[in-house]
Design a protein around this nucleic acid. Sequence first.
DNA 1: TTAGGTGCAAAGCCTTTGCAGGGAG
DNA 2: CTCCCTGCAAAGGCTTTGCACCTAA
Lengths: 149, 149
Amino acid sequence: MNQSKQKVKEQFHRFLSKKRLKATLQRSLILDAFLDLDRSTHIDELYLVLRGRHHHIGHATVYRALRLFIAAGIAREIYLGDGLTRYQVDGQGQRRDYLVCNDCGTVTEFDNSSTERHQDEAARTMGFTVQSLKIELRGLCSRCLTQQS
Amino acid sequence: MNQSKQKVKEQFHRFLSKKRLKATLQRSLILDAFLDLDRSTHIDELYLVLRGRHHHIGHATVYRALRLFIAAGIAREIYLGDGLTRYQVDGQGQRRDYLVCNDCGTVTEFDNSSTERHQDEAARTMGFTVQSLKIELRGLCSRCLTQQS
DNA sequence: TTAGGTGCAAAGCCTTTGCAGGGAG
DNA sequence: CTCCCTGCAAAGGCTTTGCACCTAA
């Protein structure tokens, strides 16, 4: 866990050097908070975590940092339609399949590359060049199902 | 085509009666415009179509009508992350696969039910109960590809 | 020293809501 | 005649931008 976190941080620093951008304290703190959450989150949650750690980082800075993480290939955006943008760690695992629980809102990811290839081919036959793919399944996770709320 | 449109309109009127809601001119015009587009659209496009037909319907009314169509099972929302909510006819055709062009932004839809079943099973093995599914492919449509912008 | 970064507040967008007047049942 | 609906404008909520001051390299 911490090892992969370290790797991501190194990846981020390489990205910054390459782009001649700066490694600031704020970016480091935001990245820490983001990686510690280890699940999909949104700006406001991140912002509150940082305040909880007694770091007063501006709202705009958090937004800007997340955009940077996306450019660096560290984060990925998810839109679930609740009006806010969610972010998730974009590991090498190529996870692009999301299970969104309609009850608790948890986002689980899983790999399903065979289906993805299948899908990709279908698109190509329509003259469409695929650059990225996202599969979103909505329903109830096992925990919410048993709780029968 | 017009036959299915007629069916949807009847479905909507049944919904209205059942809920003791009113069949107004605006709702009828908005539903016509929505069904005529026959593809995913967003409020503003619908609004412009209506203005083009010389109907001055308020923005809020269009929003309210779309929410009603959703409640009636006629429309479905789609979120692609461009900041606006898209709507699509929720017909029996069950199209839930979207090709989003990163260049021109066009959304094309296609059926791929075999893949969807495949995906559904994968989720079930993880204890997840699927209620809806969305597959989103992003890339370049054939037209933008040839224009090589 | 210099290009980039931060924070604040203001502006931008899409969407929803409040309210007074209007219309379907 | 009674609810429900419409339109306008204002308010809301998330995200981006402008600007002056600061800081990593």
